[in-house]
Design a binder for these strands. Sequence first.
DNA 1: AAGCGATGATACTGGATAGTATCATTTCCG
DNA 2: CGGAAATGATACTATCCAGTATCATCGCTT
Lengths: 205, 205
Amino acid sequence: MASGAVASAVTRFDVKRASIVGGAKDVFLRHGFEGASMDEIAAAAGVSKMTVYRYFRSKEQLFAGVIRDLCERIIDEDLERMLERRPEEALRGFARKMVAILFARDTIELHRIVIAESRRFPALGRLFYKSGPEACIAMLAAYLERHNSRRSLNLRNPRRTAEEFLELLRGYAHLRMLLGVQKTLSAREAEASIDGAVQHIFGAR
Amino acid sequence: MASGAVASAVTRFDVKRASIVGGAKDVFLRHGFEGASMDEIAAAAGVSKMTVYRYFRSKEQLFAGVIRDLCERIIDEDLERMLERRPEEALRGFARKMVAILFARDTIELHRIVIAESRRFPALGRLFYKSGPEACIAMLAAYLERHNSRRSLNLRNPRRTAEEFLELLRGYAHLRMLLGVQKTLSAREAEASIDGAVQHIFGAR
DNA sequence: AAGCGATGATACTGGATAGTATCATTTCCG
DNA sequence: CGGAAATGATACTATCCAGTATCATCGCTT
């Protein structure tokens, strides 16, 4: 009777599904949507192609599943915890974490793919924006608004300031990485971006 | 003997080539690289498919030709002329022109496609970055440095400030358009971006 | 151990499309 | 007008790949 076969949270189904999504994630991130072949995905997942199709009706469905999964993992709880300190320190911590996320290899590839495929799958672009960039903006904006009402900050438009802050963190380095012009972000560049963004809010110059 | 058949600048060859590139540009911008079929391109150019292949060895070559052509047209001389006025006015004019360029439908599509294909064609990413974004940054940086040495501005790192200025102009609206989340940029949003960027340099707050 | 559902291996179908071959036709030149 | 080069029309080849069909096999439940 094993241990509660019915009530068990993780079924064989979930395990297989996870390994398929995992393999597909690797292949999609490496070759993009068109470039990924279902045979390769099946091999990467250590699974037969038929099994892939038993879990996902089509390549599009599988792709959507992978993107959804990736979007859920982008932002962890650490990020929000960064904002619990005092303003200047909180912002620097938040910024450091954001830069690490933004410039991670997988994140760059995800941007590339979603931008590429958002014409064909408009829902995908919206899903990604909402669960990635928009979530970060909202988190920071809420923080700034909180400090605004406590008078520890005095910003005309906190939401806009939040966007500007994050925009300065991305900077052109992000575009250069999306274009393959630049391979990595040096610690020096990261610090410079962070300084620029923080100074933008505190007005130091 | 007509008008100097030999010395004539525009040959039949050039005309045909231009119409092929023109047709290809439309199709590539509408459907992306993979999505564009050579038959459709030939039809759009009003030309036989064989003729396309007589001018370009392969789809890749044709694509590269189109991107090169588009890159050359992105930045016109007007942009540089904007910087001939006095600082605040010059920057506003430059910014307005930049926003118009950045958010034009074709520019957005170009970004999308180049970002998508830069993994497969790394040279393309570099070509685009150099002749588009980098050219704009360099132009603005030179302007800021000029004013720095005249003491009409006092910036620690003009090059970085130029990047930040342009980055603030793009803002998240640009990403939203790349993702298809947002269709157009309202005049109100454009003005807000411009204000934000100009204030970032002049420190007003 | 029997039986059943889930999985694997593999070959196949059908459609799309890059690139080519062939020959008819136009266009431009002297 | 005559001839050569450029172009058009069209059919063809070869390849790649999503999705399917078939049947053998594995592993768990009872």
